[in-house]
Amino acid sequence: MDRILLAHGSGGKLYHQLIEEVFLPAFGNKHLNQLNDSAVCPVANGLIAMTTDSFVVQPLFFPGGDIGRLAVCGTVNDLAMSGATPRYLTLGMIIEADFPFADLKKICASIAEAASEAGVQIVTGDTKVVQKGHGDGIYINTAGVGELSEALDLSQRTIEAGDVIICSGEIASHGIAVMAAREGLGLKPAPLSDVAPLNGLAKALLTVVPQTKALRDPTRGGLASTLNEWAEKAGLTIEIEEEALPINKGVAATCELLGLDPLYVANEGKLLACVPAESADIALAALRSHQYGVKAAIIGKVTKDTAGRLQLATPYGGTRIIDIPAGELLPRIC
């Protein structure tokens, strides 16, 4: 059998076969192996952080990653951005009938690899199969639980003038990689997605700079969206420097070609941090010491201006306002 059938979601024999032959070998651990209605797992004393996210990316496989790695990293990163240590994930899959078994196994292997890298366990899951034509191959939902010994104040409310904005590396890679793959742009070399678990990187930062004021992974909407939100919440204008933004040359060229602004393009393996000016150097050093933060850079600062917006300084001495994105990114005509 090389294709998923409706019966695989029926709860019957094929359903159990799917669990025994695909899911348990990929993700098995003492909590999942119980196959109970819910997983009962220990957590350290303190607080838990919870989050959930759904993944509907097209294409399912793209240079640098796939929907499986994305589904793990997306949820792990949301936990990590609140300062939590991610521990457990749930895995819900909605699969379209006739989906190739080989692709499902590939996605599961990718989930297992990303989970192992992030140090999280898949402890429970659910699978539904929908009629052919009623889905896009596969949709994945993950929910995650993380541990916190104490709550960090990453609420952005303490942001003040003089604080420094740091970006952990080259921006816009994920969005461009997926768009190039989806639209068959045939770029050589193909841009690679940056999808990666950021809990290690976040921990490296928060260990040395616990007074970090804001932490976020700028996914959909890109840097422009996250920094606008911070500026608005703080009631202060954030100014970033065009020249300081780390970006891969190929990604920058693709953005120019398509008429897209990299500040609006999604990232899946980058974080933005707002830290007090006096901690900027050690924050930068901590990020750069981690494999996912080698190209970290200070990209801007919080100003005294109370307009609460995001602006960009051009290399020619001018500034311009960067708004929150209006909607779906659309490539231009010529």
Binding site: G318, T319, R320, I321, D323, A326, L330, R332, I333
Partner: peptide, 25 residues
């Protein structure tokens, strides 16, 4: 750009969209 009244606000190359997006401080 979120609710354009006319075409100049829609295209990234339209004069109004460019003005809105890159308007000076």
């Amino acid at each position: 750009p979120a609710s354009p009244a006319g075409a100049c606000m829609v295209s990234g190359e339209g004069a109004c969209a460019a003005y809105y997006k890159y308007r000076l401080k």
